[in-house]
Nucleic acid binder design. Structure first.
Lengths: 334, 334
DNA sequence: TTGAAAGCGTTACCAG
DNA sequence: CTGGTAACGCTTTCAA
């Protein structure tokens, strides 16, 4: 006979259970929390009463008194982007081993959603890990004092901890690899839609220059497979002699791969493609994607580790430990 | 001069801010919550004090008094599985439009983690949406009285709301399609590792029987691309004359696709493959995957919708509204 | 405009 | 083994 019908207006409190069972509130608390300083029959009576009334302790009241639960906010631009999925998954895993809870916010890559999230997140979590595109000032304004770790933020910042992605050596290796294969006209598909060119592009340009090849063959691409396809088409239209492409990330690379197939250019023979990220996804396409690979697992774990240190007051990792290096991982596309 | 150095032992409370600013606690509250019954200069003084002290309101205390934030727990077996990623993303989106927060738990497909999650989730969220593999009794035991919506649970249950996946018509269409292409030896790669055969297998068997073809050609496969590859190999070893395969899901299908390529069997000419789920991922492989597609977006949104009804006491949707139908979506693999 | 007092629902600390 | 009392940190009346 569970009384769960109807629009349960008032919330059942511990007091109601106590009265119903004919005991005091703290006896109810003892019974529900499995303390042993309670008689068996009393305990049973309380438990029955609680079930009968559909009682569930208020997480707020409980959290208020025993301050022992930690909740992290994880902010990402797009859960459907496999890169962020991988990061999120590893962050969730790292949090789970610590017994922490993670509230996930997907900002849909929109500034408005990001700001909205920043506004409400402060009152929901103890610390924030995330990928933000807004200015540091805005970040600071909405989350003053909250422990915060930025993931893969391309602008280094002193005010917040951030996990830096160092792909310089990896991108150099990628370019060197292409050149060793005889390529001299190497293009890049950078991400479109952001104000400044990416660090990855800078690494690419440096590497190309170091090898004395023309580094101006850059086109923009949306961060999607379709974007990668369109980008490749644009790049080849502008520079028909390009024989190899380095892309901002694997999603774009996979789109380029698909587009190359549609254009009848065989990969890697007629067009070499190297991505960035090293997603698991890259192993599913044909040919398997060669990529400047990141340890996304470490990325998420590191972020959680650092936010934990910030939270507990332990020695935080310093900047040069908060780095994930990328390295060239051969697939079959280059 | 921000005092954020050191191991911040005691938490800064509203009281500290009040004392520091020389006002009372509720004045601090007013200043921080943007109430207008406060003088400008006082407000500024309080705000300064709060920043100086690094004050952040306790979410528990705040939640206790103004009971207005809703938090949903989302439990999934594996965020790296694109199917669950898609569902999670749509659930997050639906929650965001309602201003709800979502705590995500990835149980890593392990029973132990699932139980562990069930044990702690009750004190963290107002309602649960999720994909569970444990028995209903266990579910009930740990979450008694909590609004709960099960996603795609293959055993219908009266005790909990659950979103049903109806792929019967879609699978029939898939089989019919294969038969129309002239296939008569159609195999299936069912998921391995669960006790009972899947509903999808049952649909397949029924469809095969309806067309009068041998329906016994089933092999198991782990829910991964590698599993799909191994499964295909096993299936073809046992039944070399199989010319078409229907799989438990798209991940397995994509693995089978890759394996077929490795075996030198061209798809769809020498081997037709049809998956299940209709993941976005299917469009990235070659040939694009033909699949019995689910509207994963609707799946997540429906779950959130229903849990909202349960939460507010509104009329819950009944079983026949809580269904997502699958339909055959042609790609190029069959 | 500001402050005092009264909760919000729970658990911890002592009495009994 | 059980119950009273006092926090926990905040917001919301209600007076001043």
């Amino acid at each position: 006979m569970v009384s769960s019908s109807g629009a349960e207006i008032r919330k059942v409190t511990i007091h109601d259970v106590a009265r119903f069972a004919g005991v005091s509130r703290q006896t109810v608390s003892r019974a529900l929390n499995g303390k042993d300083e309670i008689e068996g029959s009393t305990k049973q009576r309380v438990l029955d009463a609680a079930r009968e009334l559909g009682y569930r302790p208020s997480r707020f009241a409980r959290g208020l008194v025993r301050q022992d639960t930690t909740t992290i906010g994880l902010v990402i631009p797009d859960l459907l982007n496999p890169f962020f999925t991988e990061v999120a998954a590893s962050a969730l895993e790292a949090a789970r081993t610590r017994g922490w809870h993670v509230v996930v916010y997907d900002t849909a890559d929109r500034a408005a959603e990001e700001l909205g999230t920043l506004q409400v997140i402060g009152s929901q979590v103890d610390a924030v890990v995330g990928y933000f595109s807004c200015s540091e000032d805005e970040l600071d304004r909405y989350t003053r004092g909250m422990p915060m770790v930025l993931i893969g933020s391309e602008h280094r910042t002193a005010r917040f901890s951030s996990i830096r992605i160092d792909g310089e050596a990896g991108v150099h290796a990628a370019v060197a690899h292409l050149i060793a294969q005889g390529h001299t006209r190497i293009g890049m598909l950078d991400h479109a839609g952001r104000a400044e060119p990416s660090l990855r592009r800078a690494w690419f340009l440096t590497a190309a220059a170091a090898h004395g090849i023309d580094a101006g063959l850059v086109a923009g691409a949306d961060q999607s497979a379709d974007g990668g396809g369109a980008g490749l088409r644009a790049l080849l239209a502008a520079h028909p002699d390009v024989t190899a492409v380095f892309t901002f990330n694997d999603i774009i690379a996979i789109g380029a791969l698909r587009e190359a197939r549609r254009m009848g250019r065989s990969v890697p023979r007629e067009l070499a493609v190297i991505g960035f990220d090293g997603l698991a996804l890259g192993a599913l396409v044909e040919p398997p994607l060669t990529s400047v690979a990141l340890d996304t697992h470490r990325l998420g774990a590191l972020a959680i580790d650092q936010v934990g240190r910030l939270l507990t007051g332990a020695d935080p990792l310093d900047a040069d430990e908060l780095v994930v290096h990328a390295e060239l991982r051969p697939g079959g596309s280059a």
